[in-house]
């Protein structure tokens, strides 16, 4: 009997393995399919959409009877929502990706195939990023639909900006989550670390900075520089900057940023957020190449 799957006669010399991008696509496709079918995806999408709906309805209701509508409060509500939900979503998705597969031996099996580890990481990242993108776009799309239906005067550009920036934030947090995942030997540890990091970014760092403002009398340029270290703050400031084109809502530090950096702000915020995408992912790739997959 013979195995009929031969793509090449066996007398020929070694077949070339698929190119990197092909493998990345294959793995990303599988990861995306897996994610989209998974419970967490459905849960997160539903939760995000429902919370977004609530925000949209509340802000639309506030305009009742005045013939007025505004996107300000909605923006604030949506930004707040994104700040809470998206990092948690992306961090946990990233954290459970590598560690749980390592724990169950899937990673070793995958690495035993003709793929490189960087391809596996990139593929998984791309797949999860796609799933997160779908989740975010659906959630924000539902919000935008409600706002349009309720006649809230939101500029479509604002909504698209918000969606794009949320996605960028999600990519950064996914990258960080994958780094945690590569670092952790067990999935539970990785998840715990992800939640811890989430808490630190969402609450602890802001509260610490607030304490710094009060106790250390931080100057506003120092405060602004420090807040650039937190990707969530960067997302928030960038969203406000992009949606409202003014940062003065944020008081002296915002005014300082607008006056001092003006048109460069997009660049500054962009570099800060991209750093959170690129650096953890690169670190994860290096570590994954070194560490044993079993």
């Amino acid at each position: 009997m013979s195995v009929a799957l031969t793509a090449h006669p066996r007398d020929l010399s070694i077949p070339a393995p698929p190119r990197a991008w092909r493998n990345i696509l294959t793995i990303a496709g599988r990861e995306l399919r897996d994610a989209v079918r998974s419970r967490w995806f459905i849960l997160y999408t539903l939760a995000f959409a429902v919370l977004g709906l609530a925000v949209s309805f509340v802000s639309a209701a506030g305009t009742g009877g005045t013939g007025l509508s505004g996107f300000g409060r909605t923006t604030a509500g949506l930004i707040n929502l994104v700040l809470l939900v998206v990092p948690l979503m992306a961090l946990t998705a990233g954290a459970s990706s590598i560690a749980s597969e390592r724990e169950r031996g899937m990673l070793a099996y995958l690495f035993a195939q003709p793929v490189s580890r960087t391809e596996v990481l990139a593929g998984k990242y791309a797949g999860l990023a796609g799933a997160l993108a779908a989740c975010l776009m659906l959630g924000l799309g539902v919000c935008a639909a409600i706002l349009a239906w309720k006649g809230v005067a939101a500029r479509p550009a604002s909504v698209l900006w918000l969606a794009a920036l949320s996605l960028l934030l999600a990519l950064g947090m996914l990258s960080l989550g994958m780094l945690l995942s590569v670092l952790s030997r067990r999935a539970s540890v990785a998840l715990g670390a992800a939640v811890f990091v989430w808490l630190a970014l969402v609450l602890v760092s802001d509260l610490a900075l607030m304490a710094g403002v009060v106790a250390l009398r931080l100057r506003i340029e120092e405060l602004f520089a420090l807040s650039l270290m937190n990707p969530l703050q960067v997302f928030k400031m960038w969203s406000l900057h992009a949606v409202d084109a003014t940062l003065d809502v944020l008081g002296p530090a915002g005014l300082y940023a607008a006056d001092e950096h003006g048109p460069r702000l997009h660049l500054i915020f962009g570099v800060c957020l991209f750093a959170w995408v690129v650096i953890p992912l690169a670190a994860a790739a290096v570590l994954l190449a070194r560490r044993s997959p079993v």
Partner: peptide, 14 residues
């Protein structure tokens, strides 16, 4: 402390 406004809209504010 006016510089606190920087933390508007953040979960820390809530």
């Amino acid at each position: 402390e006016p510089s606190m406004r920087l933390f508007l809209f953040s979960p820390a504010q809530q």
